[in-house]
Write a protein that binds this DNA or RNA. Structure first.
Lengths: 338, 338
DNA sequence: GCCTGGCACTCGATGCGTAGGAGTGCCAGC
DNA sequence: GCTGGCACTCCTACGCATCGAGTGCCAGGC
């Protein structure tokens, strides 16, 4: 077990390193922090911290930098979540309030997060599986061509074209639309398959084929679009990464382009509470020198999607966590209102 | 006027520099290209080319590199458009053919372009103003709450919430929907304002307010969404930019985040034919060390949107132009089919 | 008149050795 | 268990000489 002072030393190292981006030595530490002990003592503490794997030296006779394990301890035990200032909170609310539709909400959220944290922001669109159906619309575009439009309670809209096996009458269409809505409106997407199972049987034989096709498309949409969408922003902040640039930035940019990777990344975050993944804790190799701070957000108690930021392991964790939490909270509010 | 051989020298310089990324000297040139003259002669030619501003030396006693003006001449007079190979063309077609909806088409196009050119790809969604209306749908979500859904011939869907001043009956709704569609389906978005102008007058006094609100929202959607959407990809390719990395890449990433900048960039491109903007020809300062190759694409003869790539001025122009042109052509086909 | 080979010159890149300094580890003393 | 002192390590910066690619210019030849 590490003594209180050693933890304090670790905290000081993390804070200084995050600020200066340079290995921090014992002397500088005692000058900048009121540790109440001499550099020599700090050196001893540092030696212990290094033995335990919390800090490391880039080379002999250089200062120490925190390891992933060191950041982990810092986040878990030494750092709180720094709340945003009142003006910041007001700015967030104002900015998000003027969003006109879901795309706009997500877009603004991304920009906001990127700006607040000065890192790369990732925002997932509200998930379909956890959303509920607000409305299903069927439009006849041509005699044997329908368009299916799915509207979620979070404002997301999905559409699909359907080619019918045989022309479908307007009354049948209205009928199907009404029955479909009666069954699924207000229900969760994940429940829809069961709810519409027996629908075709209640139709005339001649329409049954079309109804089946429509339902098949509906279910297919649910499955396909469960493959979620997301938006990223603030990639320009990657340039503040460090000196050894090209080497680190490349795999990160590549990872950011792979929606699948990002979705898995957010997916790994816990549903409630904030998740921080530091360096090698990230499964994806390209992100081994980054940390991910993610949190779920939603219109009610339950998270409908996640958002977060990706930045260098050397990041301001309390500040980042504060910003991420605050933004998630406000986005949730906006969604609940709409 | 430059002699034929001097043009040939310029072409050789561009080709070599694009390949090696290093200033090219007179000796290397004669070795790699069959110019039929000695290095000394080439040196004289180079001196002339430098006087004319087509090439420059990073410092005395280094080789030459093309200037923006040099690239311009190269593109205009010395380089053709390199067509893609048959397998490449087949691959493009296959890849795009399996797209399921507009988002997918655009997403795939971006990835394709980025991969083919190994640069940053930008694809604009089909424009609303130049599209025609396929369908307008009005849904009643709550007694005094409507949703307006606009569907374009290119498959794009826009939706808006509408809060009605007074509840709106189902029959009135159906009536409005029918009349609205009768007027605007098949028409261009830009013509819509005129076409619906007198619609409110034909409604009962009690509904007129709502009708006016709906139309106002419709027109507002047309205007707002003329502010186009676009998708970018291949940002990881920025890491191949050059040695002086952080300095160049930063402003580019920033510019890429500004949708407005990108839209203006594409907007500046001519409607038909390919546009190449080299270095300082780009209005945006951050893109002064990049070139933009853009071209319009569309389902018919007319361009409904544009796409292109952003890369270092030192790029393979013939290859890039070939890829951009080919992709635009195939995307146009896909849109025409759907 | 244009091309060519020769030649002196420039100037960045490379390598090396030295000086400087930040930081460490260890030890003896309090 | 903390502290000051001290020797040691090793990275960084700097100056300097070397090297060589590439140039510009010039005199001679086709």
């Amino acid at each position: 077990m590490l003594s209180e002072r050693r933890l304090e030393v670790l905290r000081a190292i993390v804070q200084d390193y995050v600020g200066t981006e340079e290995p921090v030595g014992s002397k500088a530490l005692t000058e900048r922090h009121k540790l109440g002990v001499s550099p020599a003592t700090v050196r001893n503490d540092m030696a212990v911290l290094e033995d335990e794997g919390f800090i490391a030296q880039p080379h002999t006779s250089a200062g120490r930098i925190p390891t992933d394990k060191g950041y982990r301890l810092f986040v878990d035990r030494l750092a709180g979540v720094k709340p945003l200032s009142a003006p910041e909170r007001r700015a967030i609310q104002n900015f998000l309030d003027s969003a006109v539709d879901l795309d706009d909400v997500v877009g603004r959220t991304v920009r906001l997060l990127a700006q607040l944290t000065r890192q790369v922001a990732v925002v997932q669109y509200p998930s379909l599986t956890r959303s509920t159906v607000r409305h299903v619309e069927l439009l006849s575009l041509a005699p044997a061509r329908l368009m299916l439009v799915l509207i979620t309670d979070t404002g997301r809209v999905e559409q699909r074209m359907i080619d019918c096996p045989v022309p479908f009458g307007d009354t049948s269409l209205a009928d199907l639309r009404a029955r479909l809505n009666a069954r699924v409106v207000g229900r969760r997407f994940s429940d829809v398959p069961l709810l519409v199972q027996e629908l075709p049987e209640s139709f005339d034989l001649e329409d049954r084929g079309t109804v089946t096709t429509v339902l098949a498309t509906l279910l297919e949409t649910l499955v396909e679009e469960t493959e979620e969408r997301l938006m990223i922003g603030g990639t320009a902040n990657l340039t503040r990464f460090g000196h050894d640039f090209p080497l680190t930035i490349r795999p990160v940019l590549e990872a950011l382009e792979e929606q699948v990777v990002l979705l898995r990344l957010l997916g790994e975050a816990e549903d409630s509470g904030m998740t921080v993944r530091i360096g090698h804790e990230n499964a994806h190799e390209g992100l081994n020198s980054t940390s991910v701070v993610a949190v779920g957000y939603g219109s009610g108690d339950e998270a409908v999607a996640k958002l977060g930021v990706v930045g260098p392991t050397r990041m301001d964790y309390p500040g980042t966590m504060g910003a991420v939490r605050a933004v998630a909270r406000y986005v949730g509010q906006i969604l609940a209102e709409s």
